[in-house]
């Protein structure tokens, strides 16, 4: 029945008052360009990992900016670092650095056992 999970009345609201900025702040302090995303999806479309999996780098970035860091740990692992996203980004966001920073911050939080 698991394919009908979506029918369960689980709230999918973005709880903005529970904003978890622990990763976002870390990234923004080190990569300001991350702020300028307009969610055009060019990165996800060209993504080598996204070609093979459900990896969606744009959505990861958007979740972070909405203060949600759930399931990020498994998702961000999928990136292959090939750099195509960075090469197509119309906003010149240094996406490879964003991924590196997210990975680093998650590793930090995991070692502190707070994630």
């Amino acid at each position: 029945m698991s394919q009908f999970d979506f029918l369960k009345p689980k709230s999918r609201q973005i709880e903005f008052e529970q904003f978890d900025d622990r990763i976002l702040t870390f990234v923004l302090e080190r990569e300001r360009s991350f702020l300028t995303c307009i969610s055009c999806g060019g990165c996800t479309a060209t993504c080598s990992a996204g070609n093979l999996t459900s990896f969606n780098i744009r959505k990861i970035g958007l979740s972070l900016r909405r203060g949600s860091i759930n399931d990020l740990s498994d998702e961000i692992q999928k990136c292959m670092f090939c750099g195509k996203c960075t090469l197509v980004c119309p906003r010149d966001i240094n996406i490879r650095n964003v991924v590196l920073l997210i990975k680093k911050r998650i590793a930090q939080l995991e070692s502190e056992k707070t994630l």
Partner: peptide, 12 residues
């Protein structure tokens, strides 16, 4: 063509 349908959140 490769794009993302960003409203769906899936590559297209």
């Amino acid at each position: 063509l490769k794009a993302e349908d960003t409203l769906q959140g899936r590559p297209l």
